[in-house]
Write a protein that binds this DNA or RNA. Structure first.
Lengths: 156, 156
DNA sequence: ACGTATAGTTGAAAATGTCAACGATTTATT
DNA sequence: AATAAATCGTTGACATTTTCAACTATACGT
């Protein structure tokens, strides 16, 4: 028996369970693709001493939107105290800076420094490579469609 | 100014950051939709004293595929020791049973009991409701397409 | 038969998530 | 204007989850 034929009879064993009805469950599919993707993303970002989380904060800090920590917490679905730790670390590395909110002095806006912007430029390249690895089973059109649907599910 | 017009100028404040380039990142979109979905799913399943994880194990145990714990770990992207805890709890509640693997006595297959099957039937209804809540911004066709794309990304 | 690899289990350590309290502000109510 | 109520960032405690190294029992390769 050829290897291919054997593979068809024993679906890689790895995804023998893919036929179970849970593969119809969006929550499960999301969780599984996210879990696999996180590993790939974090591996790609490790080179820059970043993780998915700190990378996200850095992007938002670099966006020009001058997000407050509260906005970061809401947007990233994290507890405000986790944002404190994340920003502390990035600030210690001089990648972002805190500034008092303009019309609300309780708030602190987080913006990327020039150094943060430079690191981000490099990291974004690695992140794009990681993403195409994660979505390698999709062609470009399908990948774009997937992202469009995810955005619509999130924000309508 | 109408409320709608105001909403357009100040995009709910909640998603003011949605315009940042991170919204182009599949990993981020996956993480965010998964995070929001988990809350909804777990709330729906709490009624049955289940969480996403135990619900997944129960579905797989009920699938007729007689998965081993190792297969569950691989498929659910969890450490084998986490499967032990999950199955322990479900087994204590008589929802699943462990049986020695047929051709490998090291392995243990996990199968749902009649009681587990009955609970699952109820829980699956709640899970479906939760899913349509999470994907409420998508019409039926879009939701189906999203799931198809996720499955393709995972298994080709 | 022997050494090597794998399944499940245990327990510890590290990372993450959740929550309540606090000082400094801002906003709402009188 | 004065006071009350709410919000922002922060800290620290606690719970949950993840990760990892052992260990026993069994299977597999040579």
């Amino acid at each position: 028996m050829t290897i291919e034929a054997k593979a068809e009879q024993h679906p890689a064993a790895k995804d023998r369970l893919a036929g179970a009805p849970i593969s119809q469950d969006a929550g499960f599919l999301l969780a599984k693709l996210h879990a696999g993707g996180s590993v790939v993303n974090n591996r790609a970002l490790a080179e820059f001493d970043l993780k998915e989380r700190s990378y996200s904060v850095l992007i938002l800090a670099d966006s020009g939107l001058e997000p407050t920590q509260r906005e970061l917490a809401d947007f990233l679905s994290l507890d405000p105290s986790q944002i404190v730790a994340l920003v502390d670390e990035l600030e210690k590395r001089k990648l972002v800076a805190r500034a008092p909110g303009k019309q609300d002095r309780r708030a602190k806006t987080v913006t990327a420094t020039a150094k943060g912007n430079q690191l981000l430029a490099q990291a974004a390249i690695a992140a794009r490579r990681a993403e195409s690895e994660v979505l390698s089973a999709l062609d470009a059109e399908e990948a774009a469609l997937l992202k469009t649907l995810l955005r619509k599910a999130l924000w309508g």
